[in-house]
Design a protein around this nucleic acid. Structure first.
Length: 807
RNA sequence: GGGUGAUUAGCUCAGUUGGUUAGAGUGCUUGCUUGACGUGCAAGAGGUCAUAGGUUCGAGUCCUAUAUCGCCCACCA
């Protein structure tokens, strides 16, 4: 027997233990088709918030759905623990910078810290009822995954898609590392727009260039104007004299110059921005790199050497003003590119870095994107936008400590890279030595290890490879190429999705997954994103689960359309709470009436029973269709709507028949029993996708034909009750009208209707006649009369037994 | 500035291919001790579907602008 009241806390713990002990979610390859899910390994940066619950829940529900459809679910969880996010977390907790702590000690701290947070994550996701097999979970910095990341790197090198080159790269002088385009974030900054006077060498003509970065004057290599700019056209071909720095550079023409911006004349420095780099490459300009790694002017620059960038800017403006070269200074607020991990303005550095070729294969990446189903479909447009507009090859080396090391040494003599053997992976070049004695190129015998580590995306982009145990003997390539589903929020389409596609293309020339589902964000209030700085995250996830139960939290997380933002709302939680309570109570009611029930072949259903079976069958079709499109929230909504109607309409009708066989007959009662038996089973299955705990509790009590409801299979009903579905609704409509009559007279719904006259078309009349007993019992009608009319129906007479008349 | 999505009841959201009087929950008001559930049941009030044009016999739904918001990108001249 089900308890009088459902104790979520106690039951959730009970079933969690049961699922674990019985290995309900274990993955073992068998004869079933595999449905595999590539779910984001959360970045371990200390923050767990309700946003995590939201996006992971919806994917988890898909796993449960596919499991109920008979698929063998491969659904591993991972943690993305290497790289800058973890490093910055440790730096913050320690109050010290990585280089102050030292490489080895720092790495150790990183491991300890990420372990601690990963345990918290695992606890949370377990409590939430995430049906993953924790035996196949992974970390992006374990020996196994390091091996895969390294062999992925070596494969790309071998295939010529990965190169080591001195090239301009984005540089963060706070984190002291190069970064990738995808790690940029724009930020509004107040600065000054400085109009500086230049002169031509040939005829001393004065012209003005406006710049926000006068400290780059020593780095100017050329001046550009637009070739169609009538005002400045005549300058082309002449030579510009740079004030104070006293250097002469050519004045050149390029279409990229916008003659409307500033004064229409641009200085090209190496490097101020991306256009500078573009021109530097295009016109083969000189390189004048004037910054140090930690954001200072190089010592050899006269007057400004050693100064921090901003100090140098201030000083050079003062010097220019003093010498009369400044026409005017305007206040300006503009957006600059900053490093997303620390908020520092980025610079460009010229160092040897490892790059993965992106620019030469954009079309291939677009083609791969085309071959994937994106849900919702407009997310593909975002992907295409990003790929089409990307301007850099992917810089994957980071001058940091906690990451996957490059399996590379360099010959001290000729500086050629020496690569580790595949069979020796994983290697740490700082500890391990190359297996060869001599440099194959020059015969040098001294080697220098690569100290850089890989970017975090370089390693998280191999999650499909990690999942398929790439390079291992007993791998899953056969079943996971491609994987069935990738799921993540829209903000990392440009990083995680894109980079995974890049790697998959280079390794296998194919898409990494068949489907991508993209979720929205959790908003604190309408139009307000949850952020730590605003402190508007309403509650800690684990507290919410303790307060409301995992099933209720999942109700909230499962609502809303795919790809659409969701607001955190107590009202939705309340709604979920009520729904779950109702599921439990109606199950209790049904269990009570199934005490003497034996399941056997039966076809002689009562009219109303046929009606509800047909309606369920119809509803489930739509329900499954939504889920096949990964629209978890719409599916739940659809199911919920049916469920309340089932309770309020159908159960209210059938209850009389269930309670009083002596009045209604035992076969009509059996019809009702069989109907609720079938529908509750299927409702529980459908709801189990969202509410794994309470549905298991009820299922085990009433049905238990399998070890768990989560191991059952959804089989669609196949009744053919067209007429009943349509006309049954009319009965419910009439019931509603009569109830309304009672309600507006402030009477109990049990009030007897002494006389009821319904005028109706022939077929409606006949329909009601078929369900006459149910109908009369539901409304407590004593005398029922019909009048036949042309079409439709209306109530032409209704007499209620009022309380005073009763006495 | 470019791309993309959103804007529907006080609040949180549904609304399939354009087709009667626009739906649900919550909140508010009123009633009902109905043998599963008061975390319930029944009913009521509440919307010029962001704004302005257009297409159409007919627009919440399609088109064009505008506004506001979210996400992504571009703006260091």
């Amino acid at each position: 027997m089900l308890d009088k009241k459902y104790n979520a806390k106690e039951k959730e713990e009970k079933w969690l233990n049961y699922w674990r002990d019985e290995k309900i979610y274990e993955f073992k390859p068998d004869e079933r088709e595999v449905f595999s899910i590539d779910t984001p390994p959360p970045t371990v940066n200390g923050k767990i918030h309700i946003g995590h619950i939201f996006s992971y829940s919806q994917t988890e529900m898909i796993a449960r759905y596919k499991r109920l459809r008979g698929y063998n679910i491969f659904y591993p969880f991972g943690f993305d623990d290497n790289g800058l996010p973890s490093e910055r977390l440790v730096e913050k907790e320690q109050g010290k910078k990585a280089h102050e702590i030292g490489r080895e000690a720092f790495s150790k701290l990183c491991y300890e810290t990420t372990d601690k947070y990963e345990a918290e994550f695992q606890e949370l996701f377990t409590r939430l009822g995430v049906s993953t097999d924790w035996n196949i979970h992974y970390k992006t910095v374990s020996p196994k995954t390091i091996k895969i990341s390294q062999s992925s790197f070596l494969d790309l090198v071998k295939k010529g898609h990965c190169y080591h080159k001195e090239s301009p790269a984005l540089w963060c002088n706070e984190c002291l590392t190069s970064i990738a385009q995808a790690e940029l974030e724009t930020k509004k900054v107040k600065t000054t727009f400085n109009y500086i006077k230049f002169k031509t060498v040939e005829d001393g003509e004065e012209f003005v260039i406006a710049t926000t970065r006068p400290e780059l004057l020593p780095a100017i290599v050329s001046v550009f104007v637009n070739p169609d700019d009538l005002k400045h056209k005549h300058l082309i071909g002449k030579t510009a004299h740079i004030p104070i720095i006293d250097v002469e550079v050519p004045i050149m023409a390029d279409e990229l110059v916008d003659s409307e911006k500033g004064t229409g004349i641009v200085m090209c420095c190496t490097f101020g921005d991306q256009t500078d780099i573009y021109w530097w490459k295009k016109y083969n300009l000189e390189l004048k790199y004037i910054f140090t790694e930690d954001g200072r002017i190089k010592d050899e620059i006269l007057n400004y050497g050693g100064l921090k960038i901003k100090a140098a800017r201030k000083k050079i403006i003062e010097d220019l003003q003093e010498a009369g070269y400044v026409l005017k200074i305007e206040e300006l607020e503009h957006e600059v590119q900053t490093h997303e991990r620390c908020g520092t303005e980025v610079e460009y550095s010229v160092m040897k870095q490892w790059f993965i070729d992106i620019m030469n294969h954009k079309d291939d990446f677009l083609k791969i994107g085309e071959s994937i189903n994106w849900y919702p479909s407009h997310m593909q447009t975002r992907y295409n936008e990003w790929v089409s507009n990307i301007m850099w090859d992917w810089c994957i080396s980071r001058q940091r400590y906690f990451g996957v090391p490059f399996p590379v040494w360099y010959c001290e003599n000729c500086h050629d890279p020496i690569f580790a053997n595949l069979t020796d992976l994983p290697v740490n070049p700082l500890v391990d030595k190359p297996k060869i004695q001599k440099c194959p190129k020059c015969g040098g015998t001294n080697f220098r290890p690569e100290t850089d580590v890989m970017d975090t995306w370089a390693t998280s982009s191999v999650t499909p490879l990690i999942n398929m145990r790439y390079g291992e003997k007993d791998n899953y390539e056969a079943i996971l190429r491609p994987m069935s589903l990738r799921s993540n929020a829209s903000e990392i389409i440009r990083t995680w999705d894109f980079y995974t596609i890049v790697k998959s293309f280079y390794h296998f020339q194919e898409r990494p997954w068949n489907n991508v589902m993209i979720s929205g964000f959790v908003m604190a209030n309408k139009g307000e994103k949850i952020s730590k700085s605003k402190g508007n995250s309403k509650a800690e996830p684990i507290d919410l689960i303790n307060e409301y139960s995992a099933d209720v939290i999942r109700y909230w997380a499962g609502s809303g359309r795919l790809g659409t933002d969701i607001t955190f709302s107590e009202e939705t939680l309340l709604r979920g709470k009520k729904l779950i309570n109702k599921i439990f109570n109606v199950s209790k009611f049904i269990e009570m009436h199934l005490a003497d029930f034996q399941d056997k072949e039966f076809t002689n259903y009562e009219y109303i029973d046929k009606w509800i079976l047909a309606r369920f069958q119809d509803m489930e079709k739509g329900f499954l269709k939504y889920l096949d499109e990964f629209e978890v929230g719409l599916a739940l909504n659809h199911l919920e709507k049916f469920f309340w109607n089932f309770c309020d309409d159908y159960i209210e009708i059938v209850k009389h028949r269930l309670y009083r066989p002596e009045e209604f007959g035992s076969e009509p009662r059996y019809s009702g029993q069989k109907t609720v038996y079938i529908i509750l089973y299927k409702l529980l299955q459908d709801f189990s996708i969202f509410f794994p705990y309470i549905t298991e509790e009820i299922y085990q009590e009433i049905y238990h034909d399998k070890k768990s409801i989560h191991l059952t299979e959804i089989k669609e009903l196949n009744f053919n009750f067209g007429q009943e579905k349509e006309f049954g609704n009319i009965i419910v409509d009439i019931i509603s009208i009569v109830r309304g009559e009672k309600s507006s007279n402030n009477l109990s719904l049990k009030t007897e209707v002494t006389n009821l006259e319904i005028s109706a078309a022939k077929e409606i009349k006949e329909t009601i006649a078929k369900a006459k007993k149910d109908f009369q019992a539901t409304l407590f009608v004593k005398n029922l009369k019909f009048k036949e009319i042309e079409s439709g129906f209306k109530i032409t007479k209704i007499e209620l037994l009022k309380d005073n008349e009763k006495i």
